[in-house]
Design a protein around this nucleic acid. Structure first.
Lengths: 247, 247
DNA sequence: GCGTCGGATTGATCCAAGTCAACCGTGAAA
DNA sequence: TTTCACGGTTGACTTGGATCAATCCGACGC
C-alpha cells in the first residue's frame, strides 16, 4: 500500500471536527493508505456527519441506498428479517467499520442497521465514492479489500454456525470482540458488551438461555469473569483451546 | 443500468471462441451492462481460458491471489478448512458466477475452489480489472454490485444456518438451485445435483443422513421426486410453504 | 424507600438432529 | 459376470440445545 500519514498535521480546528485526515480511525477506516492530497479529496466527499441515538435506525431494509456509512464512534448491529417474522442479527459493527455495503447490489438496503449506543457516523455518498475511486487507485483498491473482507468475515460466521457447538461459538465471539477492541486501542481483556444475550444468541444461532449458560460455564471454568454486560477475559488460551478441542 | 447488447453481432469465429462479447453468459456475468466498445476492451483482459477437470482445484486456500475467475461452464464448490480439521462448504457456483473474490482482502485465497464436474473458467487478472474499471464506469459499478450481491447471499446463508430447521434449509437450497438453473435457461423443475449428500449437508450445516432423510420426506409428501442425484420438483408451492410455516 | 420492568440466570423437561450401524444400488474394474 | 467401492438410505438410540417456567438482579421512576 501507499505510505501513510504522519500523526501530527498542522490543521485548523474547524477541519478537525469533520475531516478524515484528522480522524484517529483513519488507519482502520476507508482512508487507509491514502496520502495527504488524496485524504483531502476524501474529506470533501465525507462531509456529512450524523448522530444516531441508542436504539435508532441508521437505515432500514427496503429503503433506497445511496450512501455507505463509516462509524466514527459507537456500536451498531445489523439484522435481517424473514417474511415469516423470524429475524437474525448478521453482525455487530464498531468504530472504523463500514455499514451499508449490502445495499449496493439492489440499490436498496437489505438489512436494518441499529445503534446499540449513542453513535456518530460519516455518510459517504456512493456515486461520489465510485467516481473518486476511479481517480485514486489506492482508494479503489482499499475499498475492494474492505468488501472482500466482509465476504471472508461472513464465511467465518457460516463456519461458526455450520460446524461449531454452542460454547465454541461463544468463545469465538468473545475472542473476535477482544481482538477488535485491541485493534482500537482498548483493553483486550476487559470490555462491556453493548448487546443483550438475546442479540448475541441471534447472531450465534443460539437461544438466549444457551448463551447465558455458556457464560456461566466459562466463569466456572475460570476462563472469564462475567457480571451482566461486563466481561473480563482471564484465560485467553483456555478459550482458544475450547475452540480447537475437536479432532 | 446502461443499455445491453443485441444478441447477434457480426464477429469472426476466432473471437467467438474466447470473447466475452460473444459469450452467452454475458448477461449474467461481469460484462453485464457494457456496450460493444467496452465489451471489446474487456475481451482483451479476459484472454485466458482454462479447463478444470472434475475433482481438481481451481485454487487452494493460502495460494497468492492475482485473478478472479468467471465460470464459463461447469460447476464448482468452495470450502474453508479450520485448523482442527473441520471444514465447511461455503457455496456452490455455476456458469456465469465469479470465484475468488475472497482473495482480494489478504491477497491470498482464503478458501478452496473445486470443480464438481469438468468445467471451463475465464481468468480475469485483478489488477487489470481494477484499472479497466477505473476507465469504464459501468464495469466498476457492476463489479461492486457483484461483490455486494455476494455479501447479501452470505447473509441469506447465515439466516438459513441460524434460524431454519433441517427441512426448511433443504427446501431453501432446492428452490435456490431451481431459480439459478432457470436463470440459465434450464428447467426449473428437473435437474441433476452435482454434489453429494455430504457436500449438501456441509453447506447446510447438517449431517448427510439428515439430508437424505429430508429428501425422503419430501418425496413421501409429494413435493419432489428423487433418484440419487436426479431431482424433479413436483410442488414448488409445497416447498415454499414449508419454509414459511413458522410464525 | 418501594414497586416495576427488562434483562439475566437457573432448573426441569423435551425433541430435532447427530451418531452409530446395517444394508442397498450403481457403476467401474477385474 | 462377479467383485468392489462409494454414495445413499434407513433404523435404533443418544444428546445438545430448545422450550417452558420460576426466580433473580439492577436501573429507574415515584
Amino acid at each position: 500500500m501507499a505510505q501513510t500519514l504522519p500523526l501530527n498535521q498542522d490543521i485548523t480546528l474547524s477541519v478537525i471536527k469533520t475531516a478524515c485526515s484528522s480522524c484517529n480511525l483513519r488507519e482502520l477506516c476507508l482512508p487507509y493508505g491514502l496520502n495527504l492530497e488524496e485524504l483531502e479529496r476524501l474529506d470533501d466527499l465525507v462531509s456529512t456527519r450524523r448522530r444516531i441515538k441508542r436504539g435508532d435506525h441508521l437505515y432500514r431494509a427496503g429503503e433506497p441506498f445511496d450512501a455507505i456509512y463509516a462509524i466514527r464512534s459507537g456500536f451498531f448491529k445489523t439484522d435481517v428479517l424473514l417474511e415469516d417474522g423470524r429475524d437474525q442479527v448478521t453482525g455487530f459493527q464498531m468504530a472504523g467499520e463500514l455499514l451499508g455495503l449490502d445495499g449496493i447490489c439492489t440499490e436498496h438496503h437489505t438489512c436494518n442497521a441499529i445503534a446499540l449506543e449513542d453513535s456518530e457516523i460519516c455518510s459517504i455518498p456512493f456515486n461520489r465514492l465510485e467516481s473518486l475511486s476511479r481517480e485514486i487507485h489506492s482508494l479503489q483498491h482499499h475499498f475492494h479489500k474492505v468488501m472482500s473482507r466482509e465476504i471472508v468475515r461472513d464465511h467465518g460466521v457460516m463456519m461458526l454456525l455450520g460446524t461449531m457447538r454452542a460454547e465454541e461459538r461463544l468463545a469465538a465471539f468473545l475472542l473476535n470482540l477482544s481482538q477488535r477492541f485491541t485493534a482500537r486501542g482498548f483493553s483486550h481483556a476487559e470490555f462491556y458488551l453493548r448487546m443483550t444475550r438475546e442479540e448475541i444468541g441471534s447472531y450465534l444461532g443460539l437461544k438466549l438461555e444457551t448463551v447465558s449458560r455458556a457464560f456461566s460455564r466459562f466463569q466456572e471454568e475460570g476462563y472469564i469473569a462475567v457480571q451482566q454486560k461486563h466481561i473480563r477475559i482471564l484465560d485467553v488460551n483456555g478459550l482458544k483451546a475450547l475452540m480447537n478441542h475437536r479432532a
